[in-house]
């Protein structure tokens, strides 16, 4: 899976008329966040309640996550929503798309989600670029956000990409408005 730098994606999307607004910034986090916010149709903080993989009539496989909406930030959504993502394992067969994140039941995430396709599936914007894990820093007690990268092993919690949950959410909401 190849992902364009989000700034390039936005420029191209603009050229193709996919969105109507130019990227505001191309620098560092702010630029990336601007672009994530622009491209995402739905932004929300969620908790993963359940996960189920199904084989679709056409032979494909999708995973359906039931998510509790903790904080809706962009787009309309209900307090409990279903997120359908291609891929998963069912009936002796697996489907994987390199780069597409997978979520664990009980985890809390901030997700930047694309529009829904005609199969009611959404994709995280830029795949793993559009999925952030929310965790509580065991040392400071503060909630922090990091990309799915440094997240997976609580023992290795002190990754270098953590940022303040409060600041991150505030930055998102400022851009949404």
């Amino acid at each position: 899976m190849r992902i364009p730098p989000l700034s390039a994606a936005v420029v191209l999307a603009l050229a193709l008329g996919a969105i109507s607004r130019a990227p505001a910034s191309t620098s560092s986090l702010d630029g990336s966040l601007d672009e994530l916010v622009q491209l995402a149709e739905r932004i929300c903080e969620v908790e993963v309640l359940s996960r189920e993989s199904l084989r679709l009539p056409g032979g494909g496989i999708e995973t359906r996550y039931t998510l509790a909406t903790i904080l809706p930030m962009k787009g309309a959504m209900s307090s409990v929503q279903q997120l359908r993502i291609p891929g998963g394992e069912v009936a002796g067969r697996g489907l994987v798309i390199p780069g597409l994140p997978r979520f664990q039941v009980g985890d809390r995430h901030i997700l930047f989600l694309s529009a829904e396709n005609d199969r009611q599936q959404r994709m995280p914007v830029g795949l793993d670029d559009g999925a952030f894990l929310v965790q509580t820093n065991l040392h400071s007690g503060e909630r922090e956000v990091r990309r799915m990268s440094a997240c997976c092993d609580e023992q290795n919690w002190s990754g270098t990409e953590a940022r303040s949950h409060e600041v991150f959410v505030r930055d998102i909401l400022e851009r949404v408005r």
Binding site: M1, R2, I3, P4, L6, A9, A18, L39, A40, E41, G60, I61, P86, G87, E89, G92, R93, G94, L95, V96, I97, P98, G99, L100, L113, S114, A115, E116, N117, D118, R119, Q121, R122, M123, V125, G126, L127, D129, G130
Partner: peptide
Amino acid sequence: GFFPQGSGVVALTPITYAL
């Protein structure tokens, strides 16, 4: 179905495998 609006993905490679 892999490229809903805003996906930000240029190309991808779905891989089907035996469990």
